[in-house]
């Protein structure tokens, strides 16, 4: 019963941190509707009118739409490729005994320990040698390669937990190894695929360092995160603040919607990586 006395106190701390988290985001969304004068003279005030024109200007004049589309194109390939290569490799490592199995497994999993920026310079050189600098295919391949460690780690743990009886039954029914994987094992691994898929979706969508290094000199190929940061720098000189806030809102919105819809899966998908 002693704890009960502390309740208003605890509730207070929780509310304060809640406001610390939510207020900045609400402020950005509110500012996206203001005009520059309101933004500069009354930062805490509400917009005088709902100026949707800010969003239109951010989308077209500030190229947010183009950057957005680039991100969507890159992710539609890189995410598919990540899931396919990750699932097949994880399955081979989890379900087959062969010489070098452990070695290959640790080769993949070891990649989780080191952030990408450590190998930034040679990565740049490798991509340049392949002629993939300033290109979306280059980004697709690099995103996929750097998503593999966690994907393989997570999915091989998942494939190991699947019951063997089902696989055996399918084999007796005459299913070959490929058929077994695509028709039986993959559907059974769906919950694991969804978790790691959301993890990769957010990770690749939010990726900043890789495009900044690999797509630095062609603005038409900028991804959304990168384009937004570039916009923030140029708006600093030009002073079109409302457009920047509208761009910021447009960049936040898709992930916030994904999060709102798949809230439970997102939390479990992102925390699962750290608990193992």
């Amino acid at each position: 019963m002693k704890f009960k006395l502390h309740n208003p106190f605890s509730q207070g701390f929780l509310v304060i941190w809640g406001l610390m988290t939510a207020l900045p985001l609400l402020w950005v969304i509110a500012s996206a509707f203001k005009d520059d004068n309101e933004i500069l003279s009354d930062p805490w005030g509400l917009p005088g009118a709902l100026r949707f024109g800010n969003f239109a200007r951010a989308w077209t004049h500030a190229s947010i739409g183009e950057y957005f589309l680039n991100s969507v194109i890159v992710l539609s390939v890189s995410l598919t490729l990540t899931m396919f290569l990750g699932a097949t490799a994880a399955y081979a490592l989890a379900r087959y005994d062969f010489w070098g199995n452990r070695f290959i497994y640790y080769l993949f999993v070891g990649g989780m320990m080191f952030p990408v920026f450590l190998a930034l310079v040679p990565l740049f050189l490798v991509v340049r040698q392949l002629g993939l600098l300033n290109s979306l295919p280059g980004l697709m391949l690099v995103y996929t390669a750097y998503s593999l460690p966690f994907t393989v780690f997570f999915l091989s743990a998942f494939f190991r937990t699947l019951p063997t009886q089902v696989a055996e039954a399918a084999m007796i029914d005459g299913a070959g190894p490929f058929r077994l994987f695509f028709r039986v094992m993959l559907p059974m691994a769906k919950p694991g695929l969804i978790s790691v898929g959301i993890f990769n979706l957010l990770g690749q969508w939010n990726q900043y360092i890789i495009p900044v290094v690999l797509v630095s000199s062609d603005e038409d190929k900028y991804t959304l995160a990168q384009g937004l940061a570039a916009l923030a720098i140029s708006e600093g000189y030009r002073g079109d603040y409302s457009r920047l806030f509208a761009g910021l809102t447009l960049a936040m919105l898709p992930v916030l919607i994904v999060y709102a819809v798949f809230q439970r899966q997102v939390q479990s998908g992102l925390t699962a990586g750290q608990l193992k």
Partner: peptide, 28 residues
């Protein structure tokens, strides 16, 4: 039929990983 599957399932992932992750680390 174990090795066709192993080759088909592991080599593409390993190749991509080797070129864009392992090789850069080694070259560094």
């Amino acid at each position: 039929g174990k090795y066709p599957l192993l080759a088909a399932f592991l080599l593409p992932a390993l190749g991509l990983y080797g070129v864009f992750v392992l090789a850069p680390y080694a070259q560094a």
